[in-house]
Each structure stands twice: as C-alpha cells, then as structure tokens.
Design a protein around this nucleic acid. Structure first.
Length: 925
DNA sequence: ACGTTGCATGTAACA
DNA sequence: GTTACATGCAACGTG
C-alpha cells in the first residue's frame, strides 16, 4: 500500500497506512478524495491502491477504452473513485468494480463491444477517403485488483492503428505528444464543413457521414448533445501526461487539427476538437505556432473566436447548461500559465445581487457544489482555498444551509475577493481545477451588454432541437470548427485579457462570434434572442407584464385624464340603483367628454373651479359644482357677468395662473403616480404602506422625475413599491431624523404607530364585544376583525353611528373613533363615512367645508406651511391652492372627487389613507 | 445602530 | 408538483 501525502505542500497531511479513505474525504460524486484538512484534491494513490499490483501501468475502461495509467498522475481525472469501491469511467460513467468483476463478464462485454465497433457501416467514397485520415479504434482493458488481474482483450481496428503493445512506456507516450488514446469512428462526420471552411481545415481530415444517418443515431445525438458545445482546442499538451477518450462506443464527430498535419505528425498524435469535447478533458490549450496559420485562415473566413459552454468533465450529466463553463482556451492558458498543469473547467456562475453584495455569500449551484467541492456533512462546512487567476489565494468557507429538505451551498467570505476583483452582479465567476494539484481556481468575466445563451437555448442546442432538423449539423459545423480554433483565435487577439475585456464575455453576438443556422440556410443566421435574464430569473409571464414605469405612468395619466373629462350625458336623467349599499347613478346613455377644469381652494375654505376659454384662452372662475360640456367660452360664463366676454381681463395674473396650473399638474401627476405604484405593487399590502408612500412622495418632491430605486427587499416589495420599507434609505444612510422631525417619513412612522396602537386596542375591545356584534345585523366579519378596506369598512358602519360623523372635521372623526373603540372600523376613511356611508350624496359644499379644515389643522400641527396659508398671509386675492389632485375618489363624479378628496387625507385614515394630503401638503409647502 | 448569521419564503425552472 | 435559488428578514452579536 502506498502511503500518500496531500499534494498541498503546505498541508502535508499524510494518509496513514495506505488507508486512503481515512483522513481523506472521498467525494461521492467526484473523482477524487480530498484532504480533510485543506480540501486539496487527491487522487493518485487512490488509483494506485486499487490498481496497486499493476506494474506496467496502463488500464482502460472496459467500455470506452479510456486509459488509466497507474501512477500517472495525469490520468486521475478519467475515473471516479466510488465510495462503494472501484472506479467509474468519466467518459461513459460505467462502473468498474475492480474487486469483484468477473473476467467472463468483462469478456462478454468487450466481445459485444468489439462486434459493434467492427460492424460495417455504409460509407461514401468520401468517407472512405476520410478514413485515411482517421485513426483506428483501439480498445484495451486491463484491470488489476489486489488479488487478481483481469487482462481481457485488445482490439485494434482501422488504419494507423496503435501499437499492439498497449502498454507503452512513459517515454513512448510522450513521444506521441501525450495523447495516448484516440478513438475515431468514421461513422459520423460533419457535412459541408470543408466547403464552408476551405483549406486544410476540412479537406481530408474530417470524417463525413450522411446527415440522415447521423441524425438517426440517437446515441450520437445524445453524445453530441453532451458535447457539442464543449469544444476545446486540442493541442498536444507537451509535458503533461494526459490521455483522451471519447464516450463509450459512441461515434463522434472528428475534426482534426490541420496544424497537426502541417507539422507532419502522425495523426494519432492529434486529437479532434470534437473528440476532445466529447470527453471534455480541457487539456490546457497551448496553441501551436504552426496553427496560427490555420487560424488566420479561419479568421479570414469569418470565424471569430468564440466562447462556448463546455460541459464539465465530471458530473456533466447533472449540471445545468447554465453552469457549464464558458471558459476559453486562452483563459485556460492564463490560469495555467507556463506550467504543465491541466486546467479542468468545472462550472461557472453569473453573480446575483446577493452574491455580489456586501453580505459576502456566494450561493453555489447545488449540483456544482456537490460535484466539485469537498463533500461536507455539517452545515459549518470546511474552509476552502481558491486561487484567482493572478495566483492569489482566497480563503472561503464552503458550507451549506438546510433548505426544504435539501441543501443550499454557499461560499462565505467572498466579499474581499469580490471587491478585489471588482465584480458586480451580472459578472461571471468560473471555477476550475488545476490538475494534478487539484487546486481550485476561480476566474471571472465582467458582464457586458452582450448576451449569453439562455439555458433553454443551450439545452436546445445540446439536444439538437434548437431550430429544425439541420440545425444540429449547422451547429456542428460552426461550433466545432470555430471552437477548434478558439484558442488560436484568441491568441490572435493578442494581449486581450480575457478576464477583463468585455469582448471576452459570453457569446458575443456583436462580434459575430457565431451564426446559428436555421434550416440550413446559411445566410439566415438565427440570431439568438437576447438574454433577458438578468440577475434575477424572470419568467416569460413576468416579462410580458414588464412595462416601463414611465410608460405605464403615462398610460395611467392618459386614462386618468380621460376619466377626468367624463361627464354624464346632459339630457339624461339617472336612475339610482343600490349596489352594496352604495347609491349608483345609472345612465342609459354613455358619458360625454366635458371641459377640463381645475379646482382651487381659498384659505377661507371656499372652493373654485377654473375653466379656460376656448377662444381667448383666459381662465375664468366658476362655481365648483358646475358641469361643463366640451366647448366653453367666456360668453358662456353666466356666473360672472363681468367676465362673460373675452375682452374682460384675467382675474389672476398670468404668473399666478401658471403657478396654479403647474401646481395642479404636479399634484395630479403625483397622485396618479402614487396610485399607480400602489396598484403595481400589491394593493393588498397596502393601506399602511400607501400612506407611507404618500408621505415619502411628499418628502421627496416630484416623483415624476425621480426614478424609483429598485428594491432589494422582500419579494413583495416590487420595484416601484412605495411602502415605508422601500422608500426609506438603507440603514445608516440618508439624513438622520430628529425626534421632533415632522418630515413625512417621520410623520408616517408616528401615524403608523398610532394606528397600530389604535388597532390593537380596537381588537381587544372587539373581542369583548364580539358577542354583541354577532347579534347585530351589521356585524360583519370584516367589521369585527377590522381588516376591511376603507371603502368597504365605510358601508359596514352602523347606520346609527352616521350622525357621529356628520359635518365635523376629520380629526374629530378620528377622535371619536378612538373614543368609541370597537364599534368602528378604523380602516374606513372618515370622509368616506361622510360622503358615502352617512350620506353618499351629501352636498358638495358641505363636504368641501368639512374637508378643508383638517388640512390647515394638520399643517399647523405639523409645522408645515401651505401655499394657501402663505398666500393668505400675503393677503393676495389669488390666495389659492390646489386642494387635491383630480380623479382620485372612486365612484364619484370627477368634480366631487376633487373636493371630497381634499379632506380625505388630512388626518383621517392615517395609515390607511392614500396619503394624497401629504403630497399636497409637501408640494404646497 | 449596525453587521452577521441562519432560516424562511417567493419565484422560476424543471420533471 | 418539486426543486433550486435569490433574497428577505429576524435573531443575535458587537461596538
């Protein structure tokens, strides 16, 4: 038994007595054992332990012929060590249970395998020609256990076959350019690649096959599906002992490197790009100088370098395409530097806001974490050292949280790294492993405006279902050809830093990196849809519902404006119907559009309506209760004979009128904005939030020009949510609020607290009086629970209480509410009580009078000064203020709403109110 | 008051 | 219907 030592020199933990499982944590899904101390992957001795007695070294998977060289440290990644014992071929996932595998079973399997391999397949002459460039198939299986040796068979087929002696020495292997195994099949090929990319690329080095046969072979599809996007530039990895293999018995696309031929090397010394991708080995690409020529040609033919997703070497079956590493060969090279190390890209992840945030936690995809990171059994996890591309080690804590009977893996302590690399949400981090050290490396790519493939697209491509039947070939052509040269292409790009340059990001359509052909129409490049997935996944449904806030707001405004202009048909008499205790005016004729007017309030509380003459454009004052038709001129001004002519002077100066109009528009817009935002967030959430929002609106001024910051709070707080949670600056930010501060946020908080206390007391008393209410005909559930909305609550009021809420101020109303606990739904709006519950058709003037008082009261109490009061002090005859934005009251004639709403928000409603007053107040002040 | 930590929850993707 | 994941949030710790 070999005594092993952690390959991490700094760690140096020694595995006692060859019992390599002790002290080394064996990954169930991975290939290696890992040092429990430092997390360093460790493989070699494990193989050596299993195949200890094998002297000359080579073994191959009985299924695919993948070789395992005992003692060859580079061969480690081709087999998984299984917890149950034995190994598993990473190419075909077939287990090789070394200790117990009967030789006859293996013999049988290999016999079948042999027959399949040798089965004749129809080939065109071209294919036969291509065969000359294709190496044969060799299969060897040799496994040794501690007490027996299974030496089964050897297969050699085709031209250029390998030496029958399938146990070459290390030197022999090196002389082959470190490619010890190659399995080519002429059964499958690429069509038209040579046509598309003339020259040495596809002329005689490409296996060709009818598309038809190609596509009908499901296994091929599957095989290729796994790998068609996993191209890797295949160069002889001089100096490293690596070996390659394709999937078990599956035909594969073979694209030989022209450069290899140019060098006059034996074709066995080369690997096809697709062969490599078939079993993504990710041998570190070291572009050969001679290949540059080919690359140049390819480049001239419109082949930019590209970034393609590579299914990771291990666990690719489980890994979502989203996480397939899209690392380029150049990046691999950068990671590797000049060493002979092999870089094994593992996975990548686009950083979410959480990942890149200050919290310092990077959520790892579960499958990736379990496949490539140390196996952890405790939530505390293990420390993990990951090197960045500059060689700096970063120490993280790899751990998990229990989550829904599952696990959620995170890397903790990533903040320094994230900050150092200046990563943001949307950037991509790529995790790779350096073999043979087994060290984890992380690269990164900065996000750009270019768009990576969507998962579905990648999957579709991988499955050959993206597009129609010829897409697969098209992809094969493009991807294979392009990817085969990707490293070279990148090398041509020179000094570009793949980790910093935006050009290296994703699949850069703008660079024309790839043209997905649909339906075989080469010129019909199928543009991949831009990835709409940002940091947070967003579904198609959500995307459909996405609307620019400004657009929606404008739409809302337009609608509001339209509502504002609606008038009842002049000649029609309404019939009054009762709907849920509301009196509703019902007309037989549709409404008409009336003249747009604005409403103002004087300090005395008197309300005015202003209308603009269609002829002279002067504004004339009218009684508030006048309903105007669409056309109006000074001659129609029967209420003010002095100004019944266009020649009469303006009552207000132009400046005053403009100010009034501006004020009016601002208020209306704010009001609409607040309503809209409340709608678009969750109305249900809301009465409390709405007031807070309104408070904030009043606080921040004109929201129409202030974009809402995207909330990062609970999902229920959507972007645009204006609740108190969302409008407040983050902790520690924003201005400090003095205890005596009377800003809207503070006032909101105070009112909120007050309301909550009121609710609490109310509920207590309601419980006590529940019995009484049950017997009362009006004792609805909502009333008892106090959860009804304002309007709903209004008409659930005890009719006998109506008198309590007649023409008095809202404050008085609220005070009464507080006094008469338990009998009134505090959610109901005082004004609503007045105007709807108590007397839905109350006189407008009385409403106005009632409504305006609390505003002044409120303003004085809060130390705020309204425009009205200012103007009042100035004694101007035009001391007017806009009482409220129009169109806010539901189920009312617009005119009424303007005035009734003036009182709506002053005090009553508090948290439940819609906060219009705050806006008005703020704006006015 | 602020940062950290661990869990809970909503949503999208997947089966 | 289930799973994975992004992230909200409350409890807790610290200065």
């Amino acid at each position: 038994m070999a005594t092993v030592r952690c390959t991490n020199v700094a760690c140096g933990v020694t595995d006692p007595g060859g019992e390599w499982r002790r002290g080394w944590e064996l990954r169930s899904g991975g290939f290696a054992s890992l040092c429990v101390k430092c997390g360093m992957a460790y493989e070699q001795s494990a193989f050596c332990d299993i195949f200890h007695q094998k002297e000359s070294g080579w073994r191959e998977c009985c299924s695919c012929g993948k070789r395992l060289h005992c003692g060859c440290i580079a061969s480690k990644s081709f087999f998984h060590l299984l917890d149950t014992g034995g190994v598993q071929c990473t190419g075909c996932m077939k287990n090789l249970e070394v200790p117990s595998m009967p030789s006859e079973v293996i013999q049988s399997f290999l016999s079948q395998h042999h027959q399949r391999v040798n089965a004749p397949s129809p080939k065109s002459s071209k294919e036969n020609d291509a065969d000359t460039a294709v190496t044969g198939r060799t299969c060897e299986m040799s496994a040794t256990t501690s007490d027996s040796k299974i030496d089964v068979s050897k297969f050699v087929k085709g031209k250029g076959m390998q030496n029958a002696d399938l146990e070459p020495s290390e030197s022999e292997i090196r002389s082959f350019g470190h490619i010890k195994w190659e399995q080519h099949s002429p059964e499958v090929g690429i069509t038209s690649l040579s046509n598309r990319y003339p020259g040495p690329v596809g002329s005689s080095l490409i296996s060709l096959q009818d598309e038809k046969d190609f596509m009908t072979d499901k296994s091929i599809c599957e095989s290729l599906a796994q790998s068609c996007l996993s191209m890797s530039l295949l160069h002889s990895n001089q100096g490293s002992n690596t070996e390659t293999c394709n999937s078990a018995g599956k035909p594969f696309l073979a694209l030989h490197m022209a450069c290899s031929m140019a060098e006059g090397k034996d074709e066995r010394n080369t690997l096809s790009a697709l062969q490599q991708m078939q079993r993504p080995q990710y041998i570190l690409a070291k572009p050969l100088k001679t290949c540059t020529r080919s690359f140049s040609e390819a480049s001239k033919n419109g082949l930019p370098y590209m970034r393609v997703a590579r299914p990771p070497a291990e666990g690719r079956n489980q890994l979502l395409p989203r996480y397939w590493p899209r690392i380029t060969d150049q990046e691999l090279q950068q990671i590797s530097g000049d060493s002979n190390s092999t870089i094994v890209p593992l996975f990548e992840k686009v950083l979410s806001a959480s990942d890149a945030g200050r919290i310092g936690r990077l959520v790892l995809p579960k499958a990736c974490a379990e496949a490539y990171f140390p196996r952890i059994s405790q939530p505390e996890g293990v420390p993990l050292t990951i090197q960045d591309t500059k060689g700096k080690d970063w120490h993280f804590q790899f751990r998990f949280w229990p989550n829904n009977n599952s696990r959620m893996y995170v890397l903790e302590g990533v903040t320094p790294c994230i900050q150092s690399l200046q990563l943001q949400a949307g950037d991509t981090v790529t995790f790779s492993r350096i073999d043979p050290e087994g060290k984890l490396v992380m690269g990164y790519r900065k996000a750009t405006n270019t768009v990576p493939l969507q998962d579905s697209q990648i999957s579709a491509i991988a499955n050959g279902t993206f597009g129609n039947e010829t897409l697969f070939t098209g992809i094969s052509e493009n991807v294979s050809a392009v990817s085969g040269y990707s490293g070279l292409l990148q090398s041509l790009k020179g000094s570009m830093d793949p980790y910093l340059s935006p050009q290296s990001e994703h699949l850069n359509l703008s660079d024309g990196e790839i043209s997905w052909h649909k339906g075989g129409t080469s010129n019909e490049g199928m543009q991949l849809q831009p990835l709409q997935k940002r940091t947070r996944n967003i579904g198609a449904k959500s995307r459909r519902l996405l609307m620019n806030t400004d657009d929606a707001l404008e739409l809302k405004l337009t609608w509001e404006e339209a509502q504002e202009l609606l008038r009842p048909p002049p000649s029609a008499k309404p019939s009054i119907v009762m709907i849920e205790d509301y009196e509703v005016e019902e007309y037989d004729e549709p409404p008409i559009f009336g003249k747009k007017t604005i409403f103002t309030a004087r300090p005395s509380g008197e309300q005015d309506q202003w209308v603009q003459c269609d002829d002279c454009y002067k504004w004339r004052r009218l009684p508030v209760d006048v309903l105007l038709l669409s056309k109006w001129s000074c001659a129609d001004n029967t209420w003010d004979p002095k100004r019944s002519s266009c020649s009469a002077p303006d009552e207000l100066s132009q400046q005053e009128m403009q100010m009034l109009l501006r004020q009016y528009e601002d208020l209306r817009r704010q009001r609409t904005s607040a309503c809209f935002k409340q709608d678009s967030s969750q109305i249900a959430a809301s009465s409390l939030d709405a007031l807070a929002a309104a408070a904030a609106l009043g606080d921040v001024g004109n929201q129409t020009t202030t974009p809402y910051a995207t909330t990062t709070k609970h999902p229920r707080h959507r972007p645009g949510c204006t609740c108190i949670v969302c409008i407040q600056p983050p902790s520690g930010k924003g201005p400090k609020h003095d205890p005596t501060c009377t800003c809207n946020v503070c006032m909101t908080v105070k009112r909120r607290f007050k309301t909550l206390m009121m609710r609490k007391r109310k509920r207590q008393s309601e419980r006590e009086e529940a019995e009484v209410h049950k017997k009362a005909p009006w004792g609805s559930k909502e009333e008892v629970e106090g959860t009804s909305s304002s309007s709903k609550g209004a008409h659930h009021l005890d009719p006998h209480q109506e008198n309590e809420f007649s023409p008095v101020s809202s404050r008085t109303i609220v005070e009464n509410v507080e006094v008469s606990q338990g009998q009134i739904d505090l959610n109901c709006h005082p004004v609503s009580h007045d105007s709807q519950a108590a007397n839905p058709r109350n006189s407008m003037m009385s409403l106005l009078q009632d409504a305006y008082r609390p505003l002044e009261t409120y303003l004085k109490q809060n130390g705020l000064t309204s425009l009205a009061s200012q103007q009042s002090k100035e004694g101007s005859p035009s001391s007017l203020t806009v009482p409220q934005a129009p169109g806010e009251s539901e189920g009312k004639v617009p005119d009424e709403s303007h005035f009734a709403s003036a009182s709506k928000d002053q005090e009553g409603g508090d948290d439940e109110g819609d906060g219009g007053t705050d806006m008005a107040t703020s704006d006015a002040s």
